[in-house]
């Protein structure tokens, strides 16, 4: 998603003279063109994320619209108070960008995984979260963030089960995607709802059994706008059961919030999430997903179990 992001943000910066780009000393082999093109509007602040967010807030107070980029855990946890106090409390148009949501950074180890980033940012006042489902979803998120008058966060990721399948439909406001439609072999069927790039696992599961009786959706924005996501709500009204998948811990995840929204509308809500392990072993993103029990095969098995 990083290439798509840089391309989109570069185009946006050409159109919006008030925008500028801050990086916490990351972007090798990705941000060189932005650095060359924008002079003082590109700013490598060094390895200092707290200062980066404070500086971004100060810039925004003068009318600028900064993007602030780092690896997802560094762009969120280290500087959470700056995001809360300096950016969110002042409702400033600072666009925080975290590269490497979920297990993207796999073998780099736990410090580089971002499995609570959405949880810590979700409750912050005025904050909008964007978590594209795949590479071809990033430009739309960047465009929407560019229009926001308040703060936002973009979660970029690479799935361990990469696909860049075009959706069957995409809501222009919520960015929610539909990837699969029930075969209606059963009266009820199942609603599979994913947050962000976990949708790629569901898409791969769908490829294993294209006839499975499930609607498949991918959320990409929080707070929800469920009135606009009539498609999702209609599916849930029919199936009354949801399988929710996200590459994030269950606690504080998007699934937890969605469950709260639709409680009473469903008979079953099953979640597949990243799970913390004390005796963690390390490997690729796909390895971590397998270890945590989130693969196309396990998704398919869980879906079939719910349908049985």
């Amino acid at each position: 998603m990083r290439i798509e992001f840089v391309k989109a943000v570069h185009a946006l910066m050409e159109k919006d003279p008030k925008s500028l780009f801050l990086t916490g000393d990351l972007g090798y082999n990705a941000l060189e063109k932005v650095a060359q093109a924008f002079g003082p509007r590109f700013l490598n602040v060094g390895v200092a994320e707290q200062n980066m967010m404070g500086v971004a807030a100060g810039l925004a107070m003068t009318g600028a619209r900064p993007w602030a980029y780092s690896i997802a855990p560094f762009a969120t946890y280290r500087c959470l108070e700056q995001i809360r106090n300096d950016i969110c409390l002042h409702d400033l148009p600072v666009r925080v960008v975290g590269n490497g949501g979920g297990y993207t950074y796999g073998i780099m180890g736990s410090t580089h995984h971002a499995l609570e980033d959405l949880a810590v940012l979700k409750p912050l006042p005025n904050m909008s979260l964007f978590f594209p489902c795949s590479n071809n979803h990033v430009a739309a998120a960047v465009a929407l963030m560019g229009e926001l008058a308040g703060p936002s966060y973009l979660r970029l990721a690479i799935s361990g089960f990469q696909s860049d399948t075009a959706p069957l439909a995409e809501n222009p406001v919520t960015l929610t995607r539909r990837y699969g439609t029930r075969s209606r072999k059963q009266a009820r069927g199942l609603s599979i709802v994913c947050a962000g790039h976990a949708a790629q696992i569901a898409v791969a599961a769908l490829a294993l059994d294209p006839a499975i009786d499930a609607d498949v959706f991918g959320f990409a924005r929080y707070p929800f706008d469920l009135a606009s996501d009539a498609d999702v709500m209609a599916s849930i009204a029919d199936t009354r059961r949801v399988l929710f998948i996200e590459e994030h811990y269950a606690s504080g995840g998007i699934g937890e919030s969605f469950a709260a929204e639709i409680a009473g509308k469903v008979d079953a809500f099953v979640r597949m999430n990243a799970v913390y392990r004390k005796d963690q072993r390390y490997g690729s993103a796909a390895f971590h997903l397998a270890q945590t029990g989130m693969t196309p095969t396990t998704v398919l098995a869980t879906a079939r179990e719910m349908l049985a």
Partner: peptide, 23 residues
């Protein structure tokens, strides 16, 4: 700026100063 948690004001001031000087 809403301050009160220490160590926040100087980064903000520096961001403002950067914008004024360079942007």
């Amino acid at each position: 700026a809403a301050t009160g948690s220490l160590g926040h004001g100087l980064p903000i001031a520096a961001g403002m100063a950067y914008a004024r000087k360079y942007l």
